[in-house]
């Protein structure tokens, strides 16, 4: 597992995604889009009616977050990841449309892992509950769709050196499984 921090410039092309491996700690710079449950539901419903996504999905990265409102003079409020598994229902479709990167926390389903493998994407984990720290890496924030959804509206963010860990890479490796297994192995060896 790499200990070094690697800087990544978005968008996340399939070629770039292929260079990322489970356990890599990376710093993301570039444009990402926020979307949670309600936004995913509306986007996919709209697609059925022929209404396009509010952003270009090609090589896009979606951040599962509902930030707190920005105080006057600030770009955004606290902005840590929400539980990604709730988006599993829609994520494979988003990935098939071109959105390769996802930032969240928590387990993903087998169908999401399959889609990450098939389309060469990546699931990044950000530290859940570290919203005050993560917000410091968000330099611009612009509401682009679904304002009525409040914290669940879609925002375009510009992030600089946004710290994440590769959880699921395009070979389908899952750090939630390996990280824990590796720790337990080390721990049990120490005990003996």
């Amino acid at each position: 597992m790499a200990e070094e921090l690697r800087r990544i410039q978005l968008p996340l092309t399939p070629e770039l995604a292929k260079t990322l491996h489970m356990g890599d700690n990376v710093l993301l710079t570039g444009t990402i889009y926020t979307a949670r449950d309600a936004a995913h539901e509306r986007m996919t419903e709209n697609l059925k009616k022929g209404i396009p996504l509010p952003f270009d999905p090609k090589d896009a990265t979606i951040y599962y977050v509902g930030p707190t409102p920005a105080e006057p003079g600030k770009v955004i409020g606290s902005a840590g990841p929400t539980t990604a598994g709730r988006m599993d229902k829609w994520a494979p479709e988003m990935i098939s449309l071109g959105a390769r990167g996802m930032i969240g926390k928590g387990k993903r389903s087998a169908s999401v892992i399959e889609a990450v493998k098939k389309y060469s994407g990546c699931y990044f984990g950000a530290i859940g509950g570290a919203g005050a720290l993560l917000a410091k890496h968000i330099k611009k924030c612009r509401l682009i769709a679904y304002e009525d959804l409040g914290p669940e509206a879609i925002r375009e963010l510009y992030v600089e050196d946004f710290p994440v860990t590769v959880i699921i890479d395009c070979e389908g490796n899952d750090l939630y499984k390996s990280g824990r297994a590796e720790y337990l192995k080390l721990h049990n060896e120490k005990k003996q």
Partner: peptide, 29 residues
């Protein structure tokens, strides 16, 4: 005693100290 775990706990501590000092929400939820 876990190496990744130590780094994460450090950031979690940094996060609540930042929130405390800057008077911002600890977590967005």
């Amino acid at each position: 005693d876990g190496p990744i775990a130590c780094t994460i706990l450090d950031q979690i501590i940094d996060n609540f100290q930042t929130a405390d000092k800057e008077e911002v929400p600890i977590c967005q939820d």
